[in-house]
Simulated assay, not measured.
Amino acid sequence: MFSYTFQWNQALARLPRMLDGALVTMQIAILSMVIGVVLAIILTMFRRSGNRALSGFATTWVEIARNTPALFQIYMAHFGIASFGIHLSPYMSLLIGITFNNAGYLAENFRGALKAIPDTQTRAGRSLGMSEIGAFRYIILPQMLRISFLPMTNQMVWAILMTSLGVTVGMNTDLYGVTQDLNALTFRTFELFAIAAVIFYLITKAITLSARLIAARLFRY
């Protein structure tokens, strides 16, 4: 017979700590996206370079990121490289794992965006005296980022949700880790994780709504 007694007051009393954890979650997600975008642009340039070594490196990165679990990538960042004497904090391991994943997915998104940009634009830039890198930077890159803007938003949402995997490597300062610790102290499992779920939902909805507003303002034409 159902005998669980809800005690929301105990869970709500821990809300400040959970909000602090949410800030850490957002910090990791934002950092992983910023670094991931930069790496994805580099990987995209490698794949376009015509150099087989660089292209092969970029393709391998993308294939591993997109075809292995994110948990595996975080584990390798924490436990895998520890085999070589490199020991990272849970925070750094989580950041590296999510960044690796973001860069792989974003590089593939950028590759798809490039297909929507006619090659004639690069040739036009070259005819004006631009180098190939210059044409990519000033002509192709802005269009590529514009086309990829909404997929980048989806990846940001995914990065927020991926932070919950940090608990598997001992991360306890993000939203999920804080919730897990509070649950061990209070045994208010349903209440705490329900509140955490609402916080995750509000964060992701805020991101998607903000992205739509930004896109409507910046990409009106």
Rank of each mutant, 00 (worst) to 15 (best):
F57E: 10
A58W: 08
T60L: 14
E63N: 13
A65V: 09
N67P: 06
L71S: 05
F72K: 08
F72W: 15
A77W: 11
A77S: 14
F79N: 07
F79E: 02
I81H: 12
S83C: 03
F84A: 14
G85M: 04
H87T: 14
L88N: 09
S89I: 11
S89L: 11
Y91V: 13
S93K: 05
S93W: 01
L95K: 11
L95P: 14
N101M: 09
N101L: 10
N102M: 13
G104K: 01
E108G: 05
N109P: 00
F110K: 11
G112S: 15
G112Y: 05
L114Y: 04
A116C: 01
I117V: 15
P118Q: 10
P118G: 01
D119K: 15
D119Q: 15
T122H: 10
A124Y: 02
A124R: 03
G125D: 04
S127K: 02
S127V: 04
S127N: 10
G129T: 05
M130S: 02
S131N: 09
E132H: 11
G134V: 03
F136S: 05
F136K: 08
R137W: 13
Y138R: 14
I139A: 00
I140T: 11
L141M: 15
L141S: 12
Q143W: 00
Q143F: 04
M144P: 13
R146F: 00
S148Q: 01
S148K: 05
S148D: 04
F149K: 05
L150D: 08
L150F: 03
P151I: 04
M152P: 03
M152A: 12
M156L: 09
V157S: 11
V157H: 08
W158Y: 14
A159I: 06
L161D: 13
M162Y: 12
T163I: 10
T163A: 10
